[in-house]
Design a protein around this nucleic acid. Sequence first.
DNA 1: GAGTCTATCGCAATACGTTGCAATAAGGAT
DNA 2: ATCCTTATTGCAACGTATTGCGATAGACTC
Lengths: 152, 152
Amino acid sequence: MKPTPDPQGSLATRLQAAVQGRGQRWTEQRQLIADVLAASDGHATGAELVERVRTADPSATPSTVYRTLDLLEELGFASHHHGADGRETYHLEVVVAHGHVHCQGCGAEVELDAAAAKPILAAIERVTGYAADLDHLSLQGRCPSCRAAAAR
Amino acid sequence: MKPTPDPQGSLATRLQAAVQGRGQRWTEQRQLIADVLAASDGHATGAELVERVRTADPSATPSTVYRTLDLLEELGFASHHHGADGRETYHLEVVVAHGHVHCQGCGAEVELDAAAAKPILAAIERVTGYAADLDHLSLQGRCPSCRAAAAR
DNA sequence: GAGTCTATCGCAATACGTTGCAATAAGGAT
DNA sequence: ATCCTTATTGCAACGTATTGCGATAGACTC
């Protein structure tokens, strides 16, 4: 089995098209960074991505990685949010949009898919008029078991 | 009613008591940092606080400021959340607990008081079982006018 | 008032991100 | 195939936040 889905018209290919369609250029690093992000499916912090990219190509610098990640975001191929400690966490477009809820007690982190988040987003819109961005949704709180523990 | 509570047994005094009650020490810097935070009512970023403290006392170092802020948080006299760019924003206990909603379009930021946030927190709890921390609530989205602008 | 214990401080080093600038190289034109 | 334009890169410096460690100085005991 190849772990890589379709080698053909996959992410990097579409990405290349999108980049070039905007008069921007497609480079080795961008290919590499996209690959790394695709490989770390799920989430990865900025620093992790930088390190992985540098493993594959030591000549790549942090600035390049971060700038490329910004580009991927502009194009809608990736997004990032800030974790409990304010550090960045990136994920690919492939991953469906989702939010995060982080427990301040035990550090557990659960994800919120669109369906689960819907009532929350609806409440936000009712109260504020804002259309909240699910991908940036990063909540802090206490999970049920920590609440129970704190209550005794 | 006076807007400034009581100049006497105010924040710094209570804080001192709380600190010493835990076998910890009350120092000039802590007094100063508490004053600065109190003076910048509303919000201030970590860097801003550091700068203001250093203006008043150049011998104070960032590490001291940040450590003191952590202490204030532990004691429940202050709290911080991460803004849109992941940087820290602190506010004093005096300020009622509140969340933030930041517009990705125009950069506007509105606050959510406890009453406004209630339905949102309720929705979060229904969906996840988590008791969300209002003070850490920092939402990203699009405000009504930016949504309208984007829609055309 | 002197001595002891240890919390706190300042410093220096580190980690994570960002930015300005000069050199390089991608992609289109000739 | 070569040249041109300019997007991109790498470097270096900076901004923000954190951590370890030795030196300092509170607060408490005698």
